[in-house]
Simulated assay, not measured.
Amino acid sequence: MTTTQKVRAAVQLGPGKLEFRSFDRPRTGADDALVRIEANGLCGSDLETFHGRVPMRGGYPVIPGHEPLGVVEEIGEKAAARWGVQVGDRIAVEVLVPCRACARCLSGGYMSCRNRTVTHGYTPVSREPSLFGGLAEYLYVHPDAVVHKVSSALPAEVAVMYNPLGAAVRWTAHLGGVQLGDTVLILGAGQRGILAAAAAKAAGAARVIVTGLARDTHKLGLAREFGADHTLVVDGADAQNTVDLVTELTDGELADVTLEMTPMAAQPLDDALRATRHGGRIVVAGLKGGRPIPLDSDQVVNKALTLVGAYGVDSRGYAEAIRLLESGRFPFARLHTHTFELGETERALATLAGEIAGEEAVHVAVTPGGGG
């Protein structure tokens, strides 16, 4: 398609530096597609990369946004047949674009693909056609991208939770291996922590315990709505000791599976080691910004613990999360607190970070068309 239409996008120039630019609308062919963005979700990693605490892997300038949801506006015949979608379908687009040809891709390990050249939200605008981030009016969908069809019946602010819920499902059920009757400890009450409570219950957990900070009181309340049986505050005047409380709640049995999901904090990893039972599993998902974190390896050895690193979400996690969203089993709309127009991206990030007085944010989305 030939057109002179311009596409507006947020462009990050460096840590804390954002501007808005117009790009040429990409031409599409038989093998690719163009998606009109309905919403792009924001999460803690967006805050870390925006402020430079975690490096922008591909460099600058870049269009951020790794949780894009949109409607197919153009698609080639080959792409439509390969992805099973048509013009007008709503799709979620995975973060990673694998090569689909290397040994790792062909053996099912596409998340470890060393040949990928596109990562949504992290690919510099110098790579044509530039529109590889969700904080834009349109997203170019590379022929090798992985996409998932999502019901148009869901509100966009709920449908766009496919990414954090996908992480919660993968980290809890697939990497954590939660089974019927398990006790699950979730360290951190952010979006993924709250949704992990739902994922744990969906996997059959009998007891779910979620920790958070004093400023997270509203999030801990939501965690209970999403399946948490117990919540505890780990700082401030009313601080509770995580290990002591888990020991008490389980009559000394401790947690079968622990998810460490706190950003930039060292203590929760030690809590995870001490609050997980002999032979239990710990899924480590909280980024620490490259800082060295002490690890009591004697705990790992003497308790025969399994530690698993949680890198992103795979296709199975996304697919199961989308089915769970479409089921309506949990009050997902309750998690969404703020919607901002594309031009308000910096305010959206500040709101998610808790920097706007009087705003208690949990799930925040940016849309090209309107805010709320």
Rank of each mutant, 00 (worst) to 15 (best):
T247Q: 10
L13K: 15
G328I: 10
A239K: 01
T258K: 04
R104L: 15
P129D: 01
H51D: 15
A173T: 06
A92N: 05
G65N: 12
A202G: 05
V257I: 09
G76C: 11
P155A: 00
Y60W: 05
P143E: 00
A173Y: 02
A353V: 05
T345P: 15
A145G: 09
A350E: 14
V308W: 02
R323P: 03
L220A: 03
G166A: 04
R53V: 10
R116A: 12
S130I: 07
Q179I: 14
R8L: 01
L96A: 12
P129I: 00
G280Y: 07
Y60V: 08
N302G: 06
A239Y: 01
T250V: 03
G41D: 13
A200K: 03
L335A: 07
R281Q: 14
E326K: 00
A81I: 14
R27W: 07
T339K: 05
A357W: 10
R192S: 15
S315R: 13
G279F: 09
H120G: 02
A333L: 03
T276L: 11
G121M: 02
N115P: 11
R53T: 14
P331L: 01
P331W: 02
S327W: 00
L154C: 04
R21D: 03
L222S: 06
P164L: 05
N241R: 12
E320Y: 01
M261F: 01
A239F: 01
I282T: 10
V141F: 02
T117Y: 12
E94Q: 07
A223V: 04
T262W: 03
R90G: 03
K149V: 00
G328W: 13
H142Q: 11
D46A: 08
T339L: 15
L249T: 11
Y140M: 06
G193S: 09
L185W: 07
V87N: 12
T123H: 02
R82C: 11
G290A: 09
D24Y: 01
A228F: 05
S297M: 12
A10H: 13
G41E: 14
G16N: 12
A237M: 06
E326Y: 04
V210K: 09
A285P: 12
L325S: 01
V246Y: 04
Y311I: 07
R104V: 11
G134E: 04
G193M: 14
G176H: 07
Q191H: 06
V301H: 08
G193V: 11
L195H: 13
T123C: 07
L295Y: 08
R281T: 15
